[in-house]
């Protein structure tokens, strides 16, 4: 009796003792009730799973197998259909939900808990169908702005080897798997965010409002927080561009995604050079290309599915 049990002294027993003895009897009854069980809760659980196993093996239906078999024969087609249906439904639930935003488009996704994800062109997210019930984990490739609603489970973004963990807050994640050299960049618009590589949650970088940090594969910790102009980071949400010391290769990828075109760069040595440009409003692709070529001393020409940039 690990916890003192409540079984009372039966009256018919109590009555058999003199008044003078009753207090002592009650004491004896109480002490006996506090004796330890020789069987631990762990042993009970093990025994219960043994029992389950045994019931599975002997087959609980053993008492009337002929009925089951008869039913099987009669309804075999029904059974096949039922099994197929069950398999399909379980597959459906196992396959995560995926949202892909095409090139040239933008999208906002609202998750069941009210969290919204604004997704830049060409981005994709993936999450479990039991999102909110088991955990709140979202996989991201690309760039997105998260407005997370507080909830029982922490909200987690897994992206190209990095993890961002929050409770309720707004933040931007830029993480393209076709631009591994740029790694993962997390910027917080409001609240607090934990940012760490993979599963190394014990040593996170903690970011507060207005701070940014980046991480590249192979590094043990993301860079220490740095203040940044939030407006520049989230310009994409207004279909604007702000390039701050961004490589030409990466800028051209942004343009390809935004305008859904293919841009070939034939001047390879220019690919890794950087550029800073600020557009306060939406612009056409050609005006951006004009600016780039003017600064870098390049030219461009239209192709069947996009543009070619050359020296």
């Amino acid at each position: 009796m690990s916890k003192p049990n409540k079984h009372l002294l039966p009256d018919s027993v109590g009555r058999r003792f003199d008044k003078s003895e009753r207090d002592q009897i009650r004491e004896v009854w109480d002490i006996s009730g506090s004796l330890e069980d020789s069987v631990t809760p762990g042993e009970t659980e093990r025994a219960l799973s043994d029992l389950h196993l045994r019931l599975e093996m002997t087959g609980e239906m053993k008492s009337k197998p002929e009925i089951v078999i008869g039913w099987l024969h009669k309804h075999s087609r029904l059974l096949v259909a039922a099994i197929a249906l069950i398999t399909l439904t379980s597959l459906f639930f196992l396959v995560p939900k995926t949202v892909v935003v095409s090139y040239g488009e933008m999208a906002t996704v609202e998750l069941p808990d009210g969290t919204t994800i604004e997704m830049n062109s060409g981005s994709s997210i993936r999450y479990n169908r039991f999102y909110q019930f088991t955990n709140r984990t979202v996989e991201l490739n690309g760039e997105a702005y998260f407005s997370v609603v507080s909830h029982g489970h922490p909200f987690i973004v897994e992206t190209n080897g990095a993890t961002v963990e929050v409770t309720g807050t707004r933040f931007n994640v830029r993480s393209w798997n076709d631009e591994p050299e740029n790694g993962v960049v997390v910027t917080v618009a409001e609240g607090e965010v934990y940012f760490y590589p993979g599963l190394l949650s014990e040593n996170p970088v903690i970011l507060h409002t207005g701070e940014t940090s980046h991480w590249n594969r192979g590094e043990t910790q993301p860079s220490s927080p740095k203040m940044v102009e939030m407006e520049e980071i989230t310009a994409w949400r207004d279909l604007r561009f702000v390039f701050r010391e961004q490589t030409l290769a990466s800028i051209l990828r942004d343009l390809e995604r935004r305008y859904d075109v293919a841009i070939e760069l034939e001047a390879e040595q220019a690919a890794s050079t950087t550029l800073t440009a600020y557009y306060s409003q939406q612009v056409s692709l050609e005006s951006v290309l004009n600016d780039i070529c003017a600064v870098k001393g390049l030219r461009y020409t239209q192709t069947t599915n996009g543009y070619r940039i050359f020296k």
């Binding site: 049990n5 039966p10 018919s12 002490i31 006996s32 009730g33 004796l35």
Partner: peptide, 29 residues
């Protein structure tokens, strides 16, 4: 407590059985 356990163990079997079923398992008479 150990002493109590031992005293209970030493009870005549039928007494012990009735006592334990009542005290530990809460069965009525």
């Amino acid at each position: 407590r150990e002493l109590f356990s031992e005293w209970i163990r030493q009870l005549p079997d039928r007494q012990r059985e009735a006592f334990e079923l009542s005290r530990f398992d809460g069965l009525d008479h």
